[in-house]
């Protein structure tokens, strides 16, 4: 059975996903995948994600593991012969998927969400409480389990002076920062929603 080409998804990506329109330039050389440290873990190599977008395969793209696996090493971006910021596209797709509720707030999506919340709340990251918050997202029991698994590491960090004792305080300009971030959210690609 032949899959139908449907340009509407590509348009959706161009209009709503950060750096999404850059994929137009892809000439399918494949150097992005070849350069990716997690290439063997991805269900679709990046250039294939781009092909799927052009073909209109929304589900395959938005549910792919690949768009959630970026380690942000930038190798694909520095090597892409067409200057496509592959990493930014992958981030953009992941963000879009999370925003649209297609990607469940688990794993990286959840962690990143908590990360951002903390920035929005206090302007900085508290390395001590962030993993805790993330773990608890999985539910109370597994959360505590994960936290206990992480505990020896935390204790080691603590013993070697690498953990702040006091909780991180809000930056002074947090109110203004929040206003800015609200504005940025609104002005960003695809709008606030």
């Amino acid at each position: 059975m032949a899959g139908n080409y449907d340009p509407s998804f590509a348009k959706e990506v161009f209009d709503n996903v950060d750096s999404g329109e850059e994929i137009k330039m892809c000439m399918q050389c494949g150097i992005c995948a070849g350069s990716c440290p997690l290439r063997h873990e991805m269900d679709y190599p990046p250039r294939q994600i781009f092909t799927l977008i052009r073909a209109g395969r929304r589900d395959e793209v938005m549910n792919s593991k690949a768009i959630k696996l970026c380690t942000s090493c930038y190798r694909c971006k520095v090597r892409c012969p067409r200057g496509i910021p592959v990493i930014d596209v992958m981030h953009g797709l992941a963000h879009y998927g999370i925003k649209k509720g297609i990607i469940p707030r688990k794993g990286t999506a959840a962690f990143g969400g908590e990360f951002w919340k903390m920035i929005y709340n206090i302007g900085r990251i508290d390395e001590k409480t962030l993993p805790l918050k993330y773990n608890l997202l999985e539910g109370l029991v597994p959360g505590i389990k994960s936290t206990i698994e992480m505990a020896p590491m935390g204790i080691q960090m603590f013993l070697h002076h690498r953990m702040k004792l006091l909780p991180e305080r809000k930056i002074k300009g947090i109110k203004e920062l929040r206003k800015m971030l609200d504005k940025a959210k609104e002005m960003g690609k695809g709008g606030a929603n």
């Binding site: 059975m1 032949a2 899959g3 139908n4 250039r47 294939q48 092909t51 799927l52 073909a55």
Partner: peptide
């Protein structure tokens, strides 16, 4: 047009 899309690795149809 039905075609063999080499890079998608699939038969496709553009209507």
């Amino acid at each position: 047009v039905s075609a063999n899309d080499e890079l998608l690795g699939e038969k496709i149809k553009i209507e």
